[in-house]
């Protein structure tokens, strides 16, 4: 009983960021994977570096604009170069950039390490839906925009998007994965290039026909995470969301079992 309450609570909490701050959101939300947190930290770091440099540079600009006005009787000085200053403002940025590159490279190395995964899912992009295949588990299905959203998104549908739950971010059948497990995603496409993206996982990668790309994530909170196709893929590019349902291991196993049974009955019936 306690466990169920905990799970439900976690699910509610996980969906909060999407619902609560959504409207006037200013910044990148923190995700639910190690990679997304590292990426978020890098984002905040470089943002602060930029803000500090901006304060210094814009400060001098504004000071000059206020202080050296001709209308206030300012008389122009005659200097037109200073080797020392120029060396300083060439070298300092180089140092800052190298300092930035180090943590970025470390994170990149971690991102590229797809070894030792617990589960591999092959994701294929089509115009305009996703196909998910659990390798060696004998489960595969398509995932398309949910009916409610699809009805509301028609030109002049007369349906208020506000009245549709998770408008454009809901599918008929989400990808289901276990919490706390390293999931490797193999990406490819059947027609044109698409890109698979779940912001809460921090990762986005192109799905390219004829190629197989890889990414990995390990979600450490149960919940439903939503994203969208992120590479222009034609008419309905805006209408092929990515939804991932992260469940406890037990829930995932029983879900997988049901799916496998369904697959078996389906093939037996044929």
């Amino acid at each position: 009983m306690v466990k169920i309450v905990k799970c439900a609570l976690a699910a509610v909490l996980a969906s909060l960021p999407a619902a609560a701050f959504a409207a006037w959101e200013l910044n990148m939300p923190v995700g639910v994977t190690e990679l997304s947190r590292r990426i978020h930290a890098l984002h905040m770091l470089i943002l602060w570096v930029c803000i500090l440099i901006a304060i210094a540079v814009f400060g001098v600009m504004i000071y000059s604009i206020v202080k050296f006005r001709r209308s206030q009787g300012a008389v122009a000085a005659s200097f037109d170069h200073s080797t020392r200053a120029e060396i300083v403002w060439t070298v300092i940025p180089i140092v800052i950039l190298v300092a930035m590159a180090v943590p970025a490279a470390a994170t990149l190395v971690r991102i590229e390490d797809t070894r030792n995964s617990d589960l591999t899912v092959k994701v294929t992009g089509y115009q305009w839906r996703w196909h998910y295949e659990y390798l060696e588990r004998n489960v595969a299905f398509f995932s398309s925009l949910s009916r409610d959203s699809d009805a509301a998104r028609q030109l002049d549908s007369g349906i208020d998007p506000e009245s549709v739950q998770n408008y454009l971010l809901d599918v008929d059948k989400p990808l289901v994965v276990p919490v706390g497990k390293k999931v490797r995603v193999l990406l490819t496409a059947g027609d044109v290039i698409h890109a698979w993206w779940v912001p809460a996982f921090g990762m986005k990668k192109d799905a390219i026909p004829g190629f197989v790309n890889e990414l990995w994530f390990r979600a450490d909170q149960v919940g439903i995470y939503r994203g969208q196709c992120a590479e222009l893929c034609g008419r309905d590019h805006g209408f092929m969301p990515v939804v991932v349902d992260v469940r406890s291991e037990a829930d995932f196993d029983s879900w997988l079992k049901t799916q496998q049974d369904n697959t078996k009955t389906a093939s037996a019936a044929e």
Partner: peptide, 29 residues
Amino acid sequence: FMLATMLIAVPTGVKVFNWTATMFKGSLS
């Protein structure tokens, strides 16, 4: 490509700093 891209910010920065230094102690209208 990350390093090369970051490097472009250096000469770009030099330009911004030089424009700012041009205004510094000028007589602006």
